[in-house]
Design a protein around this nucleic acid. Structure first.
Length: 424
RNA sequence: GGAGAGGUGGCUGAGUGGUUGAAAGCAGCGGUUUGCUAAACCGCGGUACUGGUGUAAACCGGUACCGGGGGUUCGAAUCCCCCCCUCUCCGCCA
């Protein structure tokens, strides 16, 4: 959520930010009008309440002396009715204002390239080179089905399309990668591990910005009004919701969770394989930092995610997303994409964002600095998403015979398996 | 799911419908004392919204906040209703 004061004082800047994002700015018109009306009513009703408070005290004193207060009480009853009427109006305006404020996305940071869509994203750097094959590389679907490391047909029987099922060495590979990534972040990057719930309540979803706008993209457990988490960002960021932190910042947390996404509206797109699925696994990194440091922290967050890919020897590139392509809550975002030769395309495996105080305001996460209470800045990034990482590993490390040599870094986690081969 | 108990400030914990923003303690901040640390003593406190003065730092006001939302009343932490959450016991159960 934006600061209403910022809208009041820097209206043009906010409008320009929204325009750069391709967002309709009429919401600002509404907000400005509501805010104006709200404050006018507030001054009025608060003056009346002050009078009521003063007179009520007098009534108490008069009664103690045994004097008759019927007349003043009747007056106050009238005043009370007036107050109640204005209070109703204020409450209505508050609700409308809150509703509008929740729909306004974050303002993009001024370092972003301005542009309407992903074609304006800027490649910041590229690591490694594409693997050269002396045969035509296969897709992970062709390879994996032959290797028996996943089974999409039976997954469809159990659950439905878009829910992956890993088998044997494939299942172990998932577990190994999770362990490898968590160990790296905990031991070398300074994160503390959390193992959070897989469902969250609506307040948490609002806190990180999924609600109210993305309700249709999530699985909703209606009986208990709980939501399956689309990312560990939700539980981990909400770890500190409604708290004033007394710990020294920065705080780095990491968590592995499954992630659930309905992917409404993307039916038919990339439906085969592991590229776009309803459930996938991800190690997430979340930071709570002082505002002055958040852009430096974003750079080191990206570096932490890149470290995973470097150690796995994968070819990747880092994109700085343009104003039109960043997500609702983010002020700045880097995407990391892996090269997948079977797909002949780049695959997004990480999205590292600085939300500034946008989530902190919604989730009410603050800290004390020199006796004053301030909102923290929150950041998060995938470190990294598994399904697509597996795609890249399989497609990059494939051999002519259809086997897959595993990157050295995960061999210790694979119980001696160095190669995925067909088992009969 | 059934029965009971409870939700008060950063924490612990009092609280009579009328100077209660809220006793007390702890923590915190400032000061005195002290060779240093500690201790002792004195003093100060919350948050949000909002009005005024000021370029600003700031200062002076107002309103609201005792789990959340309603209600009764001139006046509610205190009385009533609804909801949420936590704990204990029972039931069920990986």
């Amino acid at each position: 959520m934006l600061d209403i004061k910022k809208i009041r004082e820097n209206e043009q800047e906010v409008r320009q930010g929204l325009k750069n994002r391709n967002t309709d700015t009429t919401v600002i018109d509404k907000v400005v009008e509501l805010d104006h009306g709200r404050r006018k009513l507030l001054t009025e009703v608060e003056a009346l309440k002050n009078r009521r408070n003063v007179v009520s005290k007098e009534i108490g004193l008069l009664k103690k002396k045994g004097e008759n207060t019927d007349k003043i009480q009747a007056e106050m009853r009238e005043l009370g009715d007036k107050i109640a009427a204005i209070d109703v109006q204020v409450r209505e305006i508050d609700a409308q204002l809150e509703g509008q404020m929740l729909l306004i996305p974050n303002i993009p940071h001024n370092s972003l390239p301005v542009g309407p869509d992903k074609f304006s994203n800027k490649v910041v750097r590229e690591y490694g080179k594409p693997v050269e094959f002396n045969f035509k590389p296969k897709t992970h679907v062709e390879l994996g089905e032959k290797l028996g490391i996943f089974d999409f047909e039976r997954a469809t029987k159990m659950t439905g399309a878009g829910f992956p099922l890993f088998v044997g060495a494939g299942a172990r590979l998932q577990r190994a990668l999770i362990q490898f990534m968590l160990d790296l972040h905990i031991k070398e990057h300074g994160y503390t591990e959390l193992w959070p719930p897989s469902v969250c309540n609506s307040a948490s979803m609002r806190g990180t910005g999924q609600l109210p706008k993305m309700a249709e993209d999530m699985y909703h457990v209606i009986l208990d009004d709980l939501w399956l988490i689309p990312t560990a960002e939700v539980p981990v960021t909400n770890f500190y919701r409604d708290e004033i932190l007394d710990r020294t910042l920065p705080i780095y947390l990491t968590a592995y969770t499954s992630c659930f996404r309905r992917e409404a509206g993307s039916a038919g797109k990339e439906t085969r394989g592991l590229i776009r699925v309803h459930q996938f696994d991800k190690v997430e990194m979340v930071k709570f930092v002082e505002p002055e440091t958040s852009y430096n922290e974003l750079e080191s967050l990206v570096a932490n995610a890149e470290d995973v890919l470097k150690r796995l020897g994968l070819h990747y590139r880092v994109l700085m997303l343009c104003t039109g392509d960043i997500s609702f809550s983010a002020a700045k975002c880097y995407d990391i994409e892996l090269w997948a030769p079977g797909q002949n395309d780049w695959l997004e495996v990480s999205s590292c964002s600085n939300f500034e105080d946008f989530q902190a305001r919604r989730a009410n996460i603050r800290y004390r600095k020199d006796g004053k209470v301030r909102f923290v800045h929150t950041l998060n990034g995938s470190g990294v998403a598994l399904a697509r990482l597996v795609v890249a590993i399989i497609e990059n490390y494939q051999q002519a015979d259809g086997s897959v040599i595993l990157p050295e870094a995960i061999v210790p986690y694979m119980g001696g398996i160095t190669k995925l081969e067909k088992v009969s």
